[in-house]
């Protein structure tokens, strides 16, 4: 691990002040950043500890929730309002990592996890455009079973590893940011970038910008939401494919629907095309499969991950089927 300065932020303003140097990183639970620093994939000169900030979950007057970025994953998953009004979010968090890691990891840090691509991690022996732009990508022709089928580029085929972010993308979550130039916010689904020719840039965050909170809008039909994760081990493994979905059925018609996919792209993949196909139609198996097909029409398999297309197709259909069954 490269030597670094450590300091603790007293509040958001203090954190932003301290982050003046662009080689400073904010430290949440450390569960991903400390690991990457030890692998010398990340080499910040300073860490500003923000893990003590923004640890509240606030009920908003409009019925939504405002989740501080420092809230621990466990605290969010066990929060009563999340469990009952946004169960997909609880389920997604509980499907991720291990209890120990969920106790440490913050909501902000979870969103900013970096890919688990083996070539990205291998600072000593592999080429990776995400680590070092222009170096080349060893995953393209290498082990890419876990890699992207949607939105990848010739320079990067990595996937985003978060489960929580997939649920937040489906639930229309909004991320609140503070930076030197003030505050801003945008949908979680837009936070992460597609790799293009700059896979080193994971998100739209500007240097020094800090995630302060996630807002969940009031979304009554989110009470009928779920998250399904498909993985090689029964637990404690990253998703091959995951699906977060909400389904609002009224009078035999799909009034509204949200779907997001994990494990398939460089970002949590909001399945807008599938939603479009479904809206207004009947909640039937054929429609669910057609919607999945629409979303996956542009999927491009690599040598090792072609199965993900069929897996995603089936999992989307099964999750929607389950929700439709519940609603019926």
């Amino acid at each position: 691990m490269t030597p670094f300065r450590y300091s603790r932020a007293t509040d958001v303003a203090d954190a932003i002040r301290q982050s003046g140097d662009c080689n400073t990183r904010y430290l949440g639970g450390g569960t991903n950043l400390v690991d990457l620093m030890r692998e010398t994939v990340e080499r910040p000169e300073a860490l500003v500890d923000v893990s003590g900030l923004s640890r509240d979950i606030e009920e908003l007057p409009d019925g939504g929730l405002l989740i501080g970025a420092g809230v621990r994953n466990t605290a969010l998953a066990e929060h009563r309002s999340v469990r009952t009004r946004y169960p997909a979010l609880s389920r997604a968090i509980l499907a991720g990592a291990s209890a120990q890691i969920r106790n440490m990891a913050t909501v902000g840090g979870n969103l900013l996890q970096r890919t688990r691509c083996a070539y990205f991690y291998d600072d000593d022996g592999s080429r990776c455009n995400k680590r070092l732009p222009g170096q080349g990508c060893d995953a393209l022709e290498g082990f890419n079973r876990n890699h992207a089928i949607l939105g990848a580029s010739p320079s990067c085929v990595a996937v985003h590893p978060s489960d929580m972010a997939v649920a937040l993308a489906a639930l229309d979550g909004v991320v609140h940011l503070h930076g030197a130039r003030g505050e801003r916010s945008f949908p979680v689904a837009d936070l992460h970038r597609l790799p293009g020719d700059r896979p080193d840039v994971d998100t739209l965050l500007e240097p020094g910008e800090l995630i302060t909170a996630i807002e969940l809008p009031p979304l009554p039909f989110a009470a009928r939401s779920t998250y399904r994760k498909v993985r090689d081990r029964s637990s404690y493994a990253f998703a091959l494919v995951s699906v977060a979905a909400l389904l609002d059925v009224e009078d035999g018609r799909i009034r509204d629907v949200r779907i997001a996919l994990g494990g398939v792209a460089h970002k949590p993949w909001r399945a807008f095309k599938a939603e479009e196909v479904l809206r207004g139609g009947p909640p039937r198996a054929a429609a669910f499969t057609a919607a999945a097909d629409a979303e996956l029409a542009d999927a491009k398999p690599l040598a090792g991950n072609g199965f993900k297309i069929e897996l995603a197709r089936r999992t989307i259909a099964a999750v929607l089927g389950e929700l439709a069954g519940e609603t019926a």
Partner: peptide, 27 residues
Amino acid sequence: CNQGACGACTVLVDGERILSCLALAVQ
């Protein structure tokens, strides 16, 4: 493992289980 993958380093901090390998002591 020293990388948060095995749980052998689990300790209790204020009663809560965490992985001490991913925890910087200064935190």
